[in-house]
Every structure is written in C-alpha cells, then in structure tokens.
Design a protein around this nucleic acid. Structure first.
Lengths: 153, 153
DNA sequence: GGGCGTATGTCAATGTGTTGACATGCCGAC
DNA sequence: GTCGGCATGTCAACACATTGACATACGCCC
C-alpha cells in the first residue's frame, strides 16, 4: 500500500455516536474468527456448532426453528443440516407425521462431538468476557438486546 | 414445528456470563439485516457500502487495506472491488507504479452513490443508538473494542 | 549483490448466506 | 366444507467469505 495506515474508523470523529456499527461488526468478526479457529480442530464450523448447541437444549426443533435461532434463513440452515446429517451427527425423518416440519435430533455421535467442542468454545467466551470490566457485563448484554430489538429483530 | 418455541437461548441459564456470543451475534445480524434492507434501495450491499465509506475517508487504499478495514480476507475484498468497478463506482489502475498494491479511488458516481446511501445508513445507526440508555454508550463502545482485542484482533 | 521475510494480488475450491419462487400442509374465518 | 392466510421445506441463482496455494514485488540484512 502507500502510507501503512492502520485502517482508521470510517467517518473519523464527528462524534462518538457514530461507529457503533463498525465496532459491533469488528467484535462479531473477532468472535467468529476465534470460534472458527478452535472449532476447526473438532471438525465443526460455527453454524454447525450453533445448530448442535441449539438442538442439545431443544431436541426436535425444525429446520425453520434452527434458522430463527441462528439468525439465518431457512435455506442456509437447510444446507448446514444436510452437512450435519452427512456427518452422522443428527437425524431427520424423511416424512413428517403431523405438519410439514421435520423434527431434528442429535445422534450419540452428535452429542459426543458437541460436548468435545463445547469446552473450546466456552474458553473463547471466557477470554472475551474477562476483557470487560465485569461490573458492566449485565448492562452490555441488555444493550446488545436493545439494539437488536430496535432494528426490527 | 411442534410447540412453537420462541427459540430460547442456547445454554439456558447457568449464569449470565454465557450468551455473550449469542447476543453479540444477534445484534450484529440485526444490524446487518437493517443495513441490507435500506442499502438495497440504493443498489448497494453492506460490504460494498463499507468499502465506499472507507475509500471516501482514505482515498487510495489498496485491496488489502480494504480487506483489513472491513474485517474480511483479501480475496473477499477483491470480489467486492470487482463489483464496484463493474458498476463504475471506483477506479483501479491495472498496474502499480511502485509496489504491487493498486490504489483504489472513488469515481464521481461513487461519491454520489455513497452520499445518497449514507443518510439511510446513518438513520439506521441512530435508531440503534437511541435504543440504549445513552449514558452507557461510551462504555459499550469500549467494551466492544476490548472484546475484539482480547480475541486476537 | 544475493537471499530472506513480508506484503500484495490473484486463482481455485468450498462453505455459508442471501433473494426469489414454488408446492405442500395446517388452521381459522366464512 | 371451502377458501384464504400462514408456516414450512425445497429448488435455483447469486453474493460473499473462507482456506490454501502461488507468483510477484519490495525492504532489509548480511
């Protein structure tokens, strides 16, 4: 490049209320990267892990449920599910007994893989949490939620 | 689905220190979605807008610079740049005079498009900011940065 | 000056995510 | 009962992002 700029923030300093999006994006990217790194050692991607975690707490969720829970579209979730089924980590009936929703369940292999990966992911989350004052954690969580809701969910 | 669960958080309630990743992801997804929606009316995607904004503040950035600034890989940034060039919003020399870096500049059309989209994006950011107490905004920004740095940048 | 390390641009393959569209199945209103 | 609204699963096309790899160009150190 030219002057080796450390990539300053977008619109420099009109006032602090700007940049929120930038910082949010940066933090999310860092988290994603860190999770990706540790999960690769377990043969999982972030969306795959998210699905397994969600399914462990709520067995029988449908594809659409998982999509909502991981903040993506049904189509994306469907692709992830196909991968997980391919890997033998989940089961999914070919036909629904009631509606159209096909309830997904973890296989024993899925449980095992999840439990192995979980420790690594929790370690990342710990690292992240210890970086903030601690007294502010609750407020931070509330603010993140408030922002999400303000944007229409 | 089965019992119409509003998709509860992953690991329910061991203590509040968990879920940070979940909330962060949710907030980032909401922001992304909202920006995507308003930007579509201007014929731009989020990464495209990010590049334009960065270039407006720092003309002559290279592809690699933009990649760092938008938290993606050089390859991803390269694809975005190709799209922007295709749309006539940026210029990029075919050959570098000094190193290998090819300095990118906004065209008049690029400036115009950016200025039009900026208002819409700022409105989204305003909506997001107004959802949090205001007194906590500075702390929130600091915490987001701290988390990003703790995860290895 | 020759090599080494670093940074860059690019190609290829793959995974993830999106919009748009469609068919199917339930459920409540009529 | 039937019809319309709504949710679901799925197909196709496309945008975006990743890892991995490679060639090129610069700066530095020896």
């Amino acid at each position: 490049m030219e002057e080796r700029v450390p990539v300053p923030p977008p619109h420099p300093a009109r006032d602090i209320t700007e940049h929120v999006g930038y910082r949010l994006k940066r933090a999310a990217a860092a988290l994603r990267g860190a999770m990706d790194k540790v999960l690769r050692e377990h043969g999982l991607t972030v969306p795959q892990y998210s699905c397994l975690e969600l399914l462990d707490e709520n067995p029988g969720l449908s594809n659409a449920d998982l999509a909502r829970g991981t903040f993506v579209t049904r189509q994306s979730a469907n692709v992830v599910l196909r991968g997980l089924k391919e890997a033998g980590l989940i089961t999914r009936p070919a036909t629904a007994d009631h509606g159209r929703a096909l309830p997904v369940h973890l296989t024993p292999a899925g449980h095992e893989r999840l439990h192995a990966a979980r420790a690594a992911v929790y370690a990342v989350e710990e690292r992240m949490i210890h970086a903030i004052p601690g007294r502010r954690l609750t407020a931070l969580l509330a603010d993140l939620d408030a922002m999400a809701e303000a944007l229409g969910e």
